[in-house]
Design a protein around this nucleic acid. Structure first.
Lengths: 337, 337
DNA sequence: TTGAAAGCGTTACCAA
DNA sequence: TTGGTAACGCTTTCAA
């Protein structure tokens, strides 16, 4: 194993450069405030000794940790991975670090994780869950740091939010389908318990139907925690069993759409001729050379970037206050609808 | 904006419970060493005041940050997301936090990120890249903390490693295909620059061919950074253009296989009757109700869990030294080959 | 432009 | 079982 090396301290760098620790500190944090010659002497010493500043000590002293915490339900489900990529990339460029915790859709874990994050005194916090317990809410408010909720536009945000309206997106896709001539449109998703945002998209689906006086909702909500593909496959089966004349179906995610697509194929149904199938998310697999899936593109990466920017500018004192930023979405027409 | 609240300090808790800060500290870190009555008085004070310990201060004093750093090229590509989930979950259960940085496959960013992580004095570091610059290597060795490399079994690990042999996996799948009667097997992947691990799988493919005296390698290495589906689609096209009688193709990932699958369909080729197609990774989309793709299942989540365990037990002084843990892989036969 | 001293909030160490 | 004191490595603040 590697040796238990003692880290080089700032005072050692200072000694080597024949200056005080304050000067070293300034060279690192505010280079403009140090005479160039002094600066380069210090920099030489830093390089020579391989000095790596201790951020924890700096944080303790300055009360700024340069850490942003992020709570994500899971990275596996295709939705949040790109957001975390965007966050991480933007934060890194600004010299900040990302502390990540996954909550596995469990409120108690989220509560505990919030405390665990706060223990590191982050300069900001990012949340992807839609609902928080009362304790969580109170703790977050009390923390006195910027909070950004992602992937939704909450009616009552804790602080700020960056996302888009899942409901509007659901409505837009349904209108696209109706506009393409479909009169009997179904919706396939999970039951509410495991997919709050899917429910919002479904609400949008209903909105569109109502608007068009197409009062014929055909919703299949698959229960349980099976994988998305199974949801799509049994969803299509159920939908057709109950409403055999359905001509289009809107799936609550691209991976659900994949399941529906493969079940349709199994049944010898042509897509989009016999049934049109639309997804949600524009995951990589939906691309032209993949499933060529008609879907809703959502700005996952951009949400991460924007959240980071918001947090950073707030950290710089540009306390622009609460903001709810709508990054929109886009219907992507490909070949399944 | 939320108020600039001052955090409750341990000394305030101590005062409220009429004990010293050391006793509070013990209640938190070593509850066994405090008399039960004292303990509950302290706990009451903690709850009443809403005290959240400052980990940064604790880390400074104890020289243990309870932070593990992770460097990942990207979360978007389906491969590492589940590993980070596994890491994060296991670490959380042990009271550790995960500091995450994405390197975007860029060595310079990786080098900078290593320094940025070390600045937080993590108790361990996890890497998913296969190659590191010399500076990186030296810095990591000097850091004197446990390092775990993931998703491969390096010949010369920096410290420990958890993964499986990409080469053996590539060989196994090729043998599976040959065993199913295929004599003319192709390989579709990216050029080495953007996919080192794919190259190892390809080496395994060649190994298998050599073993079987099938000296007829048919490799298409698609250049550029296009998405995986395009790689698969142009890969299949190229492969068939150069070796029209190919009966099976092994794709370097499931998403590449999806591209090949859709190109095959476009050409009216039946899978697996006209061409068999195999993937790698067993991503969610490969499932029975999805693509029903024959593929290689790799233990992504388990790699994260195991890495966390390794790091944690090392942190507890059980310095079991360098280890290279092979978590294996598994051929999953579904319906495309 | 530079430096000295006093913390920041915790835990290690030793004593009671 | 509990407590006092001295770090931990940096930055703030104020002075030179």
């Amino acid at each position: 194993m590697a040796d238990k090396r003692k880290w080089v301290r700032m005072s050692e760098v200072a000694a080597a450069a024949k200056v005080s620790t304050m000067t070293v500190s300034r060279v690192l944090r505010a280079p403009g405030k140090v005479r160039p010659e002094t600066s380069s002497r210090v920099e030489a010493a830093i390089r020579k000794l391989g000095y790596v500043p201790d951020e924890a000590a700096g944080a303790l002293s300055s009360r700024r940790s340069r850490i942003i915490g992020a709570l994500v339900s899971t990275l596996g489900g295709s939705f949040f991975a790109s957001t975390v990529d965007g966050l991480s990339q933007t934060l890194r460029e600004a010299g900040y670090q990302l502390l990540l915790a996954t909550t596995n859709y469990t409120p108690e874990i989220e509560d505990d994780s919030i405390v665990a994050m706060l223990a590191h005194r982050p300069d900001g916090l990012v949340l992807t869950s839609t609902q928080h317990t009362d304790v969580a809410h109170r703790r977050l408010k009390r923390a006195g740091i910027p909070i950004v909720e992602l992937w939704e536009l909450p009616d009552a945000p804790i602080d700020s939010a960056v996302g888009f309206s899942n409901r509007a997106a659901g409505k837009a896709m349904t209108e696209f389908l109706a506009g393409a001539g479909h009169q009997r449109i179904g919706f396939i998703g999970r039951s509410a318990r495991y997919d709050k945002r899917g429910q919002m998209r479904r609400a949008g689906y209903t909105d569109a139907l109502d608007d068009r006086r197409l009062h014929d909702p055909r919703v299949v909500a698959v229960a349980g925690r099976g994988d998305d593909q199974s949801v799509g496959a049994v969803g299509l089966a159920d939908l057709l069993a109950r409403w055999g004349d359905t001509t289009a179906m809107f799936c609550s995610s691209d991976s659900v759409a994949l399941g529906a697509l493969s079940e349709a194929r199994r049944r010898g149904l042509a897509v989009p001729e016999d049934v049109a199938i639309a997804g949600f998310g524009d995951f990589e697999m939906a691309s032209e050379n993949g499933l060529a899936l008609t879907t809703v593109r959502v700005p996952g990466f951009a949400i991460g970037e924007e959240a980071a920017r918001l947090l950073l500018q707030r950290g710089n004192g540009q306390a622009s206050g609460r903001q709810v930023i709508d990054l929109g979405f886009e219907i992507v027409r490909r070949r399944t609808a």
